[in-house]
Every structure is written in C-alpha cells, then in structure tokens.
C-alpha cells in the first residue's frame, strides 16, 4: 500500500506546482507543428517573450495551417486560444469568415513585405515565395518560366503536393491560376505527364526529391538557404521563373473572445520586434516580415529574388478554392 501514498503525495506536489504556475497569467497560442518543434522558432520565442511579459506562453502545435483553421472552426467560441499563428493568405479569407477573430491594432508601417499589407485582422510575421527546387548535379538547365515548365514535353519530372491536403500544394494551384488564368485547365493537362507524383504534404515530396526520384520539387525560394547553412552544400537551387513567384504570407490573429486581450496584443506587437524577427530566417526558413532590423544571414545571399510577387486576394481564394481544386482534379484525372 505504500506506493499508493507515494503516488498520492507526488500527484499532490504536481498539482500544487501547477497551481503555482497558474498564478502567472498564461497566453495560449495555437500554431503549427514545425513552429513549435525543437528546430523551429518556438523554443527561442517562448523564452524571449516570457522574459518581457511576466506571463507563461503556451504554444500548442497542430499539424499545419489547415489543421489550425479546422481546429478553430471546431472549437468556435469554446476555443482556449488567445492567438492563432500560422495561417497563410490562402486560408485567411475563410478564417475571417468565422467571425472569431479580432483586429490586431498594430501599426503596419514597420512591415517590409514583397507587397503592400493593409489587413486589420491578420498580422504577418514572415513570408516566402514558392519555387521549384532542383538538384544542380543532375539538372544543369532548369526551366526559366512556368510556361517553359508546362510547355516543354521533354522537360524534367516534378513532384508537387496535393492542394486538397497541403498549403504548398494549394499555393502552386493558385500560382498556376495567376499565370494561366482561364487556360489553367489546359496547362495542367500539358503538365500532367511530367508530374511524377502528388504527395499529401511537403515532407513526403521533399523526401522523395532528396532520394533523387525527380529532378524538381515544389518548395520555397529559401530552401537552398537551409542546405547552405546546415549541410554546407550549393547543390540544391531554386529555379527563377520569369512570370514571378506566388507568395506565402504567414500571419497571426487575435481571438475575439479571449479573456487575455492585453497579453494577446502584447504578443502581436512582440512578433514584429527584432527578437522575434531575427530568428525567423534560420528556424522557419522564411523571410522576416520587417527587414529593417538586421541583415539577413549569409546563407540568404543571392537566393532567387522574384521579378514579381503573385498573390490572390484572400476573399477570392475563399470563394474560388473549391472550384479551382475541382478543375485541377478533373484535369489530372482524365
């Protein structure tokens, strides 16, 4: 029976210490997996924010941006989130429609994105451009435009992600739509024979690419920076496309019914300070949303810098997403 008392005693201590921690206000932030992982910005940001706020920062890691949105919809007004961080511009239209989010009230002039930003609810914290990453050991002359990629029947095989299950997949679908407009369906049909496979998420696609299954994979212009910074290799490069590259802008927003409004405001403001912004490049492998604070790490030198930044308005994506996914499905399953 002795162990029962031990157990009770330890639970008691654990509960007591939990309530001691609970004396400090806690801010709950829903975000995605790779943000909270040991290699992501999460651990460093938690430390830095807790040092300034006199509070406890609780990061909740969900699978990805889409999971974040569906979790918010599932919980509705019962959500324990004070802030959600990690939606991108292809999901913000639907997130805004839930009516669960409140204006951020942050001064936007400090932003330095590839485009102008005036949204009152969603506050960007980093951004990047989609790009095809290729293996320069095996591909010496990558296509120089999306048109060339689509039209060259003898071109390299590519791996993309499914727009029904992944945000980069959806990003590429929108990119195609921006460049080909009403002819997108035809373009998909032309491209189809060179799509080696369509994976559920980014990791599967990139894994297959690293195993040399295809010459190109849909990723980001910043992917080569990782290989440079960590693997010390120049082998993997991003192909610059003359039509411009579709952007992914990652944003955070405050939950309207959260009881911790002032802490949430504090966090959103903190997001644009150098402490947060400076660690984004080498942990999230994206560009910081405010570039004025510090120079980018060397690994980010001479990456592909898109001639034009392509982006649909969030409300257009919210309205057209299902129709365009349908068009994609029909074009690729003939």
């Amino acid at each position: 029976m002795k162990w029962v008392y031990h157990l009770l005693a330890t639970t008691g201590i654990a509960l007591a210490s939990a309530s001691a921690l609970a004396d400090k206000p806690a801010l709950t932030v829903y975000t995605y997996d790779s943000f909270v992982s040991d290699w992501g910005p999460g651990p460093i940001i938690t430390k830095a924010f807790e040092a300034t706020c006199g509070c406890q920062l609780k990061l909740v890691g969900l699978e990805d941006g889409a999971a974040l949105l569906s979790r918010l919809k599932m919980e509705g007004k019962r959500s324990r989130a004070d802030v959600i961080l990690g939606l991108d511009t292809s999901l913000t239209g639907e997130a805004a429609a839930t009516g669960l989010l409140a204006p951020h009230g942050v001064e936007l002039s400090q932003l330095d994105l590839a485009i102008n930003w005036s949204d009152k609810v969603f506050l960007p914290y980093d951004y990047g451009h989609f790009a095809f990453v290729y293996d320069s050991d095996r591909l010496t002359a990558p296509p120089t435009s999306l048109h060339a990629l689509v039209n060259d029947a003898g071109g390299p095989k590519i791996i993309i992600q499914d727009p029904r299950t992944s945000t980069p997949g959806l990003g590429f679908l929108l990119w195609m739509r921006q460049v080909f407009g009403n002819d997108t369906s035809e373009a998909w049909k032309k491209l189809a024979p060179r799509i080696l496979t369509v994976t559920k998420g980014w990791s599967e696609a990139y894994g297959l690419f690293l195993e040399e299954e295809a010459l190109m994979v849909l990723s980001y212009t910043t992917s080569p920076a990782y290989h440079r910074h960590v693997d010390k290799t120049e082998r993997y490069r991003a192909a610059a496309f003359s039509e411009g590259h579709y952007a992914q802008i990652e944003v955070a927003a405050k939950v309207a019914h959260s009881p911790n409004q002032s802490l949430a405001d504090h966090f959103l403001a903190f997001m644009l300070t150098p402490e947060f912004q400076n660690i984004i490049p080498t942990t999230n492998w994206m560009y910081p949303a405010t570039r004025s604070h510090s120079a980018l790490p060397a690994a980010f030198n001479d990456l592909v810098s898109p001639k034009a930044t392509l982006l649909f308005d969030a409300s257009v994506v919210a309205h057209q997403r299902k129709i365009w996914i349908r068009e994609w499905l029909d074009a690729l399953s003939d």
Binding site: D33, S34, V36, S37, D38, W39, G40, G42, L59, V60, G61, L62, E63, W202, S203, Y206, G207, L210, S223, Y226, H227, V230, W285
Partner: peptide, 21 residues
C-alpha cells in the same frame, strides 16, 4: 497538440518538417 504529445513518430515528423532528413 503535438507539443505535449511528443511521441517518437511525432518527433520524426517534426524533423522531416524542418528539413532534418
């Protein structure tokens, strides 16, 4: 919540998601 539920497979996915193949 994968932060409080860091199992081995979840960790594996975290690594894959962070280029750490």
């Amino acid at each position: 919540d994968t932060t409080g539920m860091l199992t081995l497979p979840v960790m594996l996915y975290h690594q894959l998601g962070a280029y750490r193949f």
